[in-house]
Structures are given as structure tokens and as C-alpha cells.
């Protein structure tokens, strides 16, 4: 392998490698780290972020950003809990419909007017949060999940792992196929890599962008609904700042914030990495969870710098 290939592998799989190293180091350092229970707890708590991050991966590869997913996650949870009084179908479809519609609206505005995704989805973040507060009486009302069948979705488990983990895994595989093996996936890469060239090559640029934001909205709503099922209620205070965690996970996973390159495996590794860092810090005990954010932040900064250097190394060869 030459230098260019090494740097490419590092860029694509760096998060996975660091994840492996951290797991080994953690297992050696803490007896209680490498237990099935702890592993399950990391995986389960990571799954909701992972679902959101999968959608974010598409958005970022297409050259955009979606800041509204944290708010949509919360709204999805509230709507699911509220809808559960009408049965399982409503509990699932209501959040998906509303969050998908918000994504569609954002996508249309971004694709048709050429406005910056950052601004459009920032407006989405604020607007959706307002909507959520209105539904929940400024957060005073907490809807409880009424339908036991829906609660099972979040709480039932097979082989020690709850259902959301399997849902996440299935989504990740589907997303991988979608991204790598379909025309839509190719279009997402092309739009993010060079929008002008993509247009000249016949890629439906606007449509691709709209789809990407719809997907991101749908997945955020789904994650919110599953989380409500797990907690048996639509909690309104969770999910603040979740969009930033999702972006961090995607970038740590090797997807370029400038678009055009990246993948689902990296994103999943990035999500797990954030979870493992949190878990390790909990193991240390003397450190608070606030410290976890510091470590994640430092790590993110290192990744961004490393990516810069790696892509430079690739260009020089």
C-alpha cells in the first residue's frame, strides 16, 4: 500500500480503528467495561443517535447540513406518545408524517431558492421547537404512551438487545445499499462532490436535495418515536443539541463536512465511538459527564485536523 492508499483507508476507517483501540484499552483498564451489560447499554443508548446520524450522513454527503433533527427528534417523541392513544399505527405514522413534511418543506426551500441549508434548517430547529412547546403546553404536559404494543417496540428485547438496536442495524444496512448501490446514492455523492458538474452530467440536483432532507426528517421522527416507546412517554427536554452530536458523529466517521465523500459504516463507528467515550468516562467515576463533552469536542477537533491532512496527502500523490 502506498501513502495515498493508507491515507484513504485512514480517512474511511479511522473511526473504526480508534473505536477498536478504545474498546481494547477500556477492557484492559476497567473490569466492568467489557461486560455484556455495559456493551448492551452503550449500543442501546447509541441507537437513537445512530438513526439520526444515518439521515445526517446523506445530508452532509450531499453538501448540506440539517440542524433541525434535534427538534424533530423531540417533536417525534411527543407526537408518538400523543398518538399512542389512538393505537400503534397512529403512534408510528403521526411523527413520521409530520417530521417528513418538515423535511420536505426544508428540502424544497433549499433546493428551489438556493438558500443556505444552515439557515433554512436553523429556522426549522427554532420553528419545530416552538411547535413542540405549543403541543406540550410549554413542556408542562408530558404525554404518556398509552398503547402497550407501541411501548414494546422500544422496550422489548431479543438476545439482551432491545428492538431499536435491530431497527438501527436494519436501517444502516438499507442506507448502505441505498448510498452505494443505487442511482439515488450516486446522485447524492455527485451533488455533494461538484454540484455544477453533477447538473451537467444529468443528475436531478434539486430532487436529490429534497429527498435527502425528507429522509433526514423521517429518520429523526422515527428515532424520536422509538425513544418515546422506550421511555413510555414523550419527554420534551431530551434532544436539545442532539443535531450537533449527530453532526459530530458523522464527521468523526470520516464524512467530509464539505460533502461528496463519506459513508454509513464510518457514521455508525462515529456514533459508537461517542458512546464508548461516554462509557469510559463513567467508568473513571471521578469525572462528571460534562467531561465527556470536553473529550468528544477535543476528539472532533483532532478528526477534522486529521482529515484535512489526509486529504492533502491524497492530493499530493
Amino acid at each position: 500500500m502506498n501513502r495515498e492508499q493508507v491515507s484513504r483507508v485512514l480517512q474511511q476507517h479511522g473511526a473504526l480503528m480508534v473505536l477498536g483501540v478504545l474498546v481494547i484499552v477500556g477492557s484492559l483498564a476497567f473490569d466492568s467495561f467489557a461486560t455484556p451489560g455495559n456493551a448492551a447499554s452503550v449500543v442501546v443508548s447509541s441507537s437513537f443517535l445512530a438513526i439520526i446520524a444515518i439521515g445526517m450522513t446523506f445530508v452532509i454527503i450531499s453538501g448540506g447540513i440539517d440542524l433541525s433533527v434535534g427538534s424533530l427528534f423531540v417533536l417525534g417523541g411527543v407526537l408518538a406518545a400523543y398518538g399512542s392513544q389512538y393505537g400503534l399505527a397512529v403512534a408510528l405514522l403521526l411523527p413520521l408524517a409530520v417530521c417528513g413534511a418538515v423535511g420536505l418543506l426544508q428540502g424544497l426551500v433549499i433546493a428551489r431558492t438556493g438558500m443556505a441549508p444552515f439557515i433554512v434548517t436553523l429556522a426549522g430547529l427554532l420553528g419545530v421547537r416552538g411547535l413542540m412547546l405549543a403541543i406540550s403546553d410549554e413542556g408542562a404536559t408530558t404525554y404518556l404512551v398509552k398503547d402497550p404494543a407501541f411501548a414494546v417496540l422500544g422496550q422489548g428485547a431479543v438476545f439482551g438487545l432491545s428492538y431499536p438496536v435491530y431497527v438501527t442495524a436494519a436501517l444502516a444496512v438499507a442506507a448502505m445499499v441505498l448510498l452505494q448501490r443505487t442511482g439515488f446514492g450516486q446522485n447524492v455523492y455527485a451533488v455533494g462532490g461538484n454540484e455544477q458538474a453533477a447538473a451537467l452530467m444529468g443528475v436531478p440536483v434539486a430532487r436529490t436535495k429534497v429527498y435527502v432532507y425528507v429522509m433526514s426528517g423521517l429518520l429523526a421522527g422515527l428515532a424520536g418515536a422509538l425513544n418515546a416507546a422506550r421511555l413510555s412517554s414523550g419527554v420534551t427536554i431530551l434532544g436539545i443539541g442532539l443535531e450537533l452530536d449527530a453532526i459530530a458523529a458523522v464527521v468523526i466517521g470520516g464524512t467530509l463536512l464539505t460533502g461528496g465523500a463519506g459513508g454509513i459504516t464510518g457514521t455508525v463507528a462515529g456514533v459508537l465511538l461517542l458512546g464508548v467515550i461516554q462509557s469510559l468516562i463513567n467508568q473513571v467515576g471521578s469525572l462528571t459527564s460534562a467531561f465527556q463533552q470536553v473529550v468528544s469536542g477535543v476528539f472532533l477537533a483532532l478528526v477534522v485536523v486529521a482529515q484535512r491532512l489526509l486529504s492533502k496527502a491524497q492530493r499530493l500523490t
Binding site: Q186, Y189, A190, G193, N194, L200, M201, L256, G260, A261
Partner: peptide, 9 residues
């Protein structure tokens, strides 16, 4: 004149 393709693909 400038290659109009997607460099990262």
C-alpha cells in the same frame, strides 16, 4: 477545459 466531473467519486 476544466474537467467537469466529480473528483471524489
Amino acid at each position: 477545459q476544466e474537467v467537469n466531473l466529480v473528483p471524489m467519486m
